[in-house]
Design a protein around this nucleic acid. Structure first.
Lengths: 217, 217
DNA sequence: CCTCAAAGTTGCGTGTACGCAAGTTTGCGT
DNA sequence: ACGCAAACTTGCGTACACGCAACTTTGAGG
């Protein structure tokens, strides 16, 4: 993960990626997301349009990457940082809440941008899936190497729960003119995340308790 | 779901969708997936290329839809069919195993087709997400209407687990020339599904046990 | 039966995604 | 220090996704 196998190469790659992210977000904020062509982003980042597509497979992906930059690794690190004594469910929940409450991401224009355009909204929700891989690694570490399998499922579930929380968070601006929702229509992001992750707590803790003999059914 | 609000309209729509699905799959099997243009599929189904894109948002989507047709509704129905006495985790697991063991889907050419091309493989895995919506409905029904929220998270997690099981199922043909995997590299699909769903059982059963007071933290 | 609005289809135009092959950069082995 | 192989960038060409506006079908009401 944090292994730059080739020093300079990797450096440049990350720089290019960041340049593209930032350019995409900046241009989208300046001109509105509809008035940004990939050529503009590529030009602003100083690479060819073709290279742009070696880094991002859609225009929206680059823009949202400017918002959620590197949160994947952050979440994993935050989980790993919790002491082994705290329950896995708490470690994961708190780590995620902590990382998604990072003040940098939520300047008002950006949020409005995302909630407005459906394509961006979808791409944004898609970023939740990004935590899956790195999260799998840390969960597998906590559970012991015999349960890669369990770790994969749990981290995928956590990612799904995060996606749902984000979905509810950005929904109000998008849909439901009749606000007579039975459930709480929206709340603070931390609350949404907590209540989305709560149903998974039993699974997380059960996995931790049982170091997972492969023969179990 | 099963509410044809306009009889004939809806009939035709489903017919078109099915025609496209079938045409896509048939052509992909006949010519190989690389030699199928969208125009061909549309022509074979007797609609315009533009209409094709009103039904499917990618070429791969149409092809895999030919394989996984309507499994979403089937799974939901299978869960609903289980008596309320059996534990939710068992109901869900068995329903899914049952539906994914449907003999129709697994003729050898089709499977080879999917595992070969990466784009198709991804699209196929994406279909697992399709069970999310209908599954949410039945789970919410079993849990009681106060826990829509929990049902959403659980069904999303189940869908993610299914995706992982399918991923492992189709992996061997794709990657890992060095077969020295620590975990079981592949197994029968039912086994993979069961062991992917197993880690979620505690969460499913806990949700069922606790009709979920909204105030809980 | 006739009319009308909602839903669906189609062609067109624009912008996008990506395979491919050639050219360039990086870093390792000697 | 040199040259080579792998990695990255780029231009080109093709196919695709999708908004838009015009046109056709469907089904409900007068």
């Amino acid at each position: 993960m944090t292994t730059p196998r080739h020093g300079l190469r990797e450096r440049k790659k990350q720089a290019t990626r960041k340049a593209l992210r930032d350019a995409a977000l900046r241009l989208a904020l300046e001109r509105g997301p509809g008035n940004v062509r990939v050529d503009d982003i590529a030009a602003a980042a100083g690479v060819s349009p073709r290279t742009y597509n070696n880094y991002f497979s859609s225009r929206e992906q680059a823009i949202v990457a400017g918002v959620t930059a590197e949160r994947e690794a952050r979440v994993a690190a935050a989980v790993a940082a919790r002491p082994a004594a705290v329950r896995l469910s708490d470690a994961v929940t708190e780590a995620i809440v902590e990382q998604y409450t990072d003040p940098g991401s939520h300047d008002p224009g950006t949020l409005l941008l995302i909630t407005t355009r459906p394509a961006l909204r979808d791409a944004f929700l898609g970023t939740a899936a990004g935590i899956e891989h790195s999260l799998t690694a840390v969960i597998a570490e906590r559970l012991g190497d015999t349960s890669q399998h369990t770790a994969r499922v749990l981290s995928a579930s956590v990612a799904a729960a995060v996606r749902i929380a984000l979905q509810q968070w950005v929904r109000p601006a998008t849909a439901s003119p009749a606000a007579s929702e039975l459930v709480i229509p929206s709340g603070s992001l931390p609350d949404l995340l907590r209540s989305a992750l709560a149903p998974l707590a039993p699974a997380l803790d059960a996995a931790e308790r049982r170091p997972r003999r492969p023969g179990g059914c």
